[in-house]
Design a protein around this nucleic acid. Structure first.
Lengths: 216, 216
DNA sequence: TAGATTGTTAATCGATTAACAATC
DNA sequence: TAGATTGTTAATCGATTAACAATC
């Protein structure tokens, strides 16, 4: 197991990197060449020390009094996140949310492309949304194999999510981006990322109600 | 500051509670009356001790050898999350994502209702989506005050998110559910919850690429 | 040079995990 | 009763924050 110089990055850091990245790209287009941790921290009302720790994990080194080379940071973060790789995904379930994702233009920035969409509803087959044709879900496995697809986006109702996940695994897909509230049972080698509206809403509402006292 | 028996709950716990809740509701409809931490942990491939700690923060006490009263847990979690309160929200930005949220039926379960939607595009005004009429965004502040709205959902493009957030604050809204990738500058008393696709995708892609070695 | 900013090491904080007595 | 499960306390782990010398 050759993990000589393999650095395990904390997940909190990992979650902050894409946020920094967006900001760095913005200031870069405005012509800046260098930026300090203080400047980044100010933008996000966070702590310069934390930003420095986060940036350190990208491997980029800064210069005292000058800061970090913005371009170098952008490159390092994108490479680290895997956004310089070709990330091709299939999307399953062309409801409102599926449609929204199919038409989401910013995915290009993340090296991310939805190359095909699938649905079980015959009425939707053949339609074209955001430049992507909708195919029958039965064809998912074979096409995923042929095209070496790595990522499956699940935007079907919870009741059919498990079946779709199994199709993805059968098709050789190794990463699942699950927008349904279903708990998926797949082999441990498969990476799953859940996007749970209920969780996000719970954080918001509990802060608004129960914990509001804290703001006093 | 009367925080005598006020318990600060860890955010990781807070994020797990709605997931437990969904499962508890499911087993409850199947007729079960009690459940053990072991059973819950098995469902989520997590640890019984962690589940017990999490449940302890709801205040419900279990019984040795029997477990927890499912109904009591459901009640306690819903109350804790603030889902028994009336959570009325305004949604701003009726694009694909806004439309998807407007038609999302499960929000009822969370005591959550989108009572009005707003857009800047005159062509969309007056349309009705998911039973909600679309109003001109200029009317947001006044209506939010009159209806005592607490939550604003921002589904506009990043470029107009800050302006919308300011309208929300002007209208007395205290919680913002931000689906745009913009960093919002609002008074510290306002609670903001970000839903960032880029962050979620970053976790997925970095696990698939850079960190896949870990699976060995 | 002086002072801002870096990189690094140490201290603190908080969450998870382990251990174990109490209990039904 | 015996043994599964609880609640609680202690140990571990990991992330954040603080401190500070090095450097440009």
């Amino acid at each position: 197991m050759n993990n000589k110089d393999y650095i395990k990055i904390p997940e909190p850091t990992l979650r902050r990197l894409p946020v920094y990245l967006k900001f760095l790209k913005h200031v870069h287009t405005e012509g800046a060449a260098h930026i300090s941790c203080t400047d980044i921290a100010r933008e996000f009302q966070s702590d310069p020390t934390q930003v420095r720790k986060d940036l350190a994990s990208t491997g980029v080194v800064g210069t005292a009094r000058i800061g970090f080379d913005i371009k170098a940071l952008i490159d390092a973060i994108e490479i680290f996140l895997g956004w310089r790789n070709k990330n091709e995904a299939f999307l399953v379930g062309v409801g409102n949310l599926g449609r929204a994702l199919l038409e989401y233009k910013q995915f290009q920035e993340y090296g991310f492309t939805i190359v095909a969409a699938f649905d079980a509803d015959p009425a939707k087959i053949g339609q074209c949304i955001g430049g992507t044709e909708i195919l029958p879900v039965e064809r998912l496995e074979a096409l995923a194999w042929r095209m070496h697809i790595q990522i499956g986006i699940i935007t079907v109702p919870a009741s059919s999510a498990q079946a779709v996940a199994e199709r993805c695994v059968q098709g050789g897909i190794t990463g699942i981006w699950n927008f349904s509230p279903a708990v998926l049972k797949v082999p441990r080698t498969i990476v799953i990322e859940y996007v749970l509206l209920s969780t996000s809403l719970a954080v918001l509402t509990s802060k608004l109600h129960g914990q509001q006292k804290e703001a006093l």
